[in-house]
Amino acid sequence: MHLILFFLFAGLCLAGAINLLLQSHPINSALSLIVVMTSLAVLYLLLGAEFLAAAQIIVYSGAIMVLFTFVVMLLNAGREERTLGSRAARIVGFPAVAALLAVLATLILRAHGLGAAALNQGITSTQDLSRVLFHALLLPFEVTSVLVLIAILGAVVLARRDPDEPSGNRERTAAE
């Protein structure tokens, strides 16, 4: 069962990631990224991380991707064009990425002592996770809340229209 689920969702994950690269319209890329993130949530469940699976769906495929699709629609982004710069990046980039993937795969396949994952084994409950998070790592957790607050302020300041700039078109600013 674990094997079937792994193959199903790993395949979906890779297909979504490849589709993200092949699509030329940003909204199609955003939708395939949602497929990738949701199937990753299932893989997290298979690895016994139930809280992270829920957080992956809520935070990533919920909040972040809604933000992405919202911006794509707001800016009315059209098809992208292929230019000389991208071809140069392909000539240099593809061999480098292939080398990176080859090195990583060799390291992983030659590593000893890696176990296996089966169903109903090694499940981390939300209780265990929160016990560590709110005892040993309370300070980092609170610091990230400050970080998120600063990010909200930064987003509002950056996306705000200049008050003295004459506004010709009436598009809404992304103040959320």
Partner: peptide, 11 residues
């Protein structure tokens, strides 16, 4: 790796 490829080829 697919992410890196996308970073390089997307315009």
């Amino acid at each position: 790796s697919l992410g890196v490829v996308g970073f390089l080829i997307k315009r």
